[in-house]
Amino acid sequence: MYDSVLIPTDGSEMVDTTLEHGLRIARDHDATVHALYVVDSRVARAAEDAREDVEASLHAEGEKATEHVRARAEDAGVETVCEIRTGTPQKEIVEYTEEAGIDLIAIGTHGKSPREKLLSMGSVTERVVDSAPVPVLVVRD
């Protein structure tokens, strides 16, 4: 049923909770885990004069974040593919899902209240759920 599970990571502690669920599903289905970090191009553009430094810093953060997922997956005996992309996170997550033939996305959320959601622009997780071509497992913090 699931041959490939995508676990997007932003390097936060939330990914550990998401990994508990995503790795269990991957292990149970003998699936490959895909760890994806997206360097948010909007953040780099906003940095103007320091754009290259910000991009390099974010890319280094992405390497650390995807390596964390790889290490946890290896400990669980799950094959892993790591990818770092640059762009808008929700768009890159959906595009990667389509390109890599992902069967399930396991993604974390910080569990905002309805009021907090109204005040925000909308989370990456919500936008992925709205546009993903595959099932999405949302793991609350």
Rank of each mutant, 00 (worst) to 15 (best):
M1P: 14
L6Q: 07
I7D: 05
M14Y: 13
V15F: 02
V15Q: 01
D16F: 13
T18L: 08
H21G: 01
G22Y: 08
L23F: 03
L23R: 00
I25P: 01
R27F: 03
R27G: 09
D28F: 02
T32A: 05
V33G: 00
H34C: 04
H34E: 13
L36I: 11
S41I: 04
S41F: 00
S41Q: 09
V43G: 08
A46Y: 08
A50K: 02
R51M: 11
E52T: 06
D53V: 03
L58H: 02
A60L: 09
E63N: 09
A65L: 02
E67T: 12
E67H: 13
V69K: 10
R72A: 15
D75K: 11
V78G: 06
V78A: 04
V78Q: 04
E79V: 15
T80E: 08
V81G: 03
R85S: 11
R85Q: 15
T86F: 02
T86Q: 11
G87C: 13
T88I: 15
Q90L: 00
K91E: 15
I93D: 07
T97R: 10
T97P: 04
E99P: 02
G101R: 09
L104P: 05
I107F: 11
K112S: 10
P114S: 13
E116L: 06
L118F: 13
S120I: 02
S123P: 14
V124Y: 07
T125G: 04
E126F: 05
V128R: 13
D130R: 15
S131C: 05
V134E: 07
V134Y: 09
V134R: 03
V136S: 14
L137Q: 13
D141Q: 15
